[in-house]
Design a protein around this nucleic acid. Structure first.
Lengths: 105, 105
DNA sequence: TCCAAATATCAATAGGTGTTCATATGAACA
DNA sequence: TGTTCATATGAACACCTATTGATATTTGGA
């Protein structure tokens, strides 16, 4: 039915990845990268954040293999790494569209 | 190609949900709930955490509609709320199984 | 080589959050 | 009603982390 007994090591990695997606700024950055390859400057403008901040976040997203960056002359182009992320986000968006936020009981 | 222009309000909710999954203890709790309906005590034992801590986390998971709890006599039984979560976690697990962690460049 | 553009790194800080311990609430049963 | 089991809540603290501003690095061109 559900995945049985996920090793502790994986749990750590998975939680870490979720944690990265848990910051609104970082999530926006990733969403922009999902739309296509973008240089850092464009990303910063798109998410309305400072260049420094975006660069910091991209470093973390890179380390978690959520985005990959390649130099193109002076700029570095970032894009989303793989497709699991797309599916995951699709499910998550579906979840968020489903019901209004539940009252805290 | 990818989801275009997700409203800011949804981004906030989605990020908040991811943030909840970003804590190892909370993630373990959710995984246990995915295996089937469980009372709080069993969950606490399964994830090796104090009853108080588990209760605190369950409150947050409930508020985000990731789990639902129903009273059964003295105990409260919790289980995973919907199926998007299952798919999402499946993708995430696949992602974590794919490659070893990238060196921080 | 000197300069400008684009990105990355450093240091410091303010605000958030997971955890613990103690206590309160609720439900069943004598 | 009084007691016990199961769960929830409250307060306090230690740690972490997102953000900022300034500076460094890298690249391409004049």
């Amino acid at each position: 039915m559900a995945e049985p007994h996920i090793p502790e090591a994986n749990i750590t990695i998975i939680a870490e990845t979720f944690r990265l997606l848990g910051d609104p700024t970082r999530l926006k950055i990733l969403l922009v990268c999902l739309e296509g390859p973008r240089p850092v400057g464009d990303i910063a403008q798109a998410v309305d954040a400072s260049q420094s901040l975006v660069s910091h976040h991209l470093r973390l997203l890179r380390a978690a293999r959520l985005v990959v960056g390649t130099r193109k002359a002076k700029q570095v182009i970032y894009e989303a790494a793989d497709d699991h992320i797309r599916h995951m986000l699709a499910d998550m968006i579906a979840h968020s569209d489903e019901e209004p936020d539940a009252p805290d009981h």
